[in-house]
């Protein structure tokens, strides 16, 4: 399952899609970045409501396949530009983290 396929299957909104063909290998849900840094694994889809610019650093560090922002959370210009620079995929959904996670779980 690629990020692009996941986006289409779950009708996720594209915020920053720089590597659409990245393969997905599971998922992690969390908002405390110190935990995410230690727990999320390479290739995971990371579902969060945190929109601070540090999410890009954490996504790079953990090498997740994409960030999915839950609950319709939006990011500002600075976060978007940093994501483009660092090549981090970001998708967004109005749904809750639980609903998104169960959608991902059904697909992979």
């Amino acid at each position: 399952m690629t990020v692009e396929k996941l986006k289409n299957e779950l009708s996720l909104k594209e915020v920053c899609l720089v590597n659409a063909q990245r393969e997905i290998t599971g998922g992690y849900v969390g908002d405390l970045l110190s935990w995410v840094m230690g727990k999320a694994e390479s290739g995971n889809v990371w579902i969060t409501i945190m929109s601070n610019v540090n999410i890009i650093a954490v996504a790079s560090l953990t090498d997740v396949s994409c960030i999915i922002l839950a609950e319709g959370v939006e990011v500002d210009e600075n976060v978007l530009n940093t994501a483009k620079q660092k090549g981090v995929n970001i998708l967004m959904s109005e749904k809750s983290a639980f609903e998104i996670a169960s959608g991902v779980a059904n697909l992979i």
Binding site: D31, L32, L33, S34, W35, V36, M37, M50, N52, V53, N54, A57, V58
Partner: peptide
């Protein structure tokens, strides 16, 4: 851990 900036953002930005 609770409501501290480092636990929340992963660094002292």
């Amino acid at each position: 851990e609770a409501n501290g900036i480092i636990a929340t953002l992963g660094t002292f930005p």
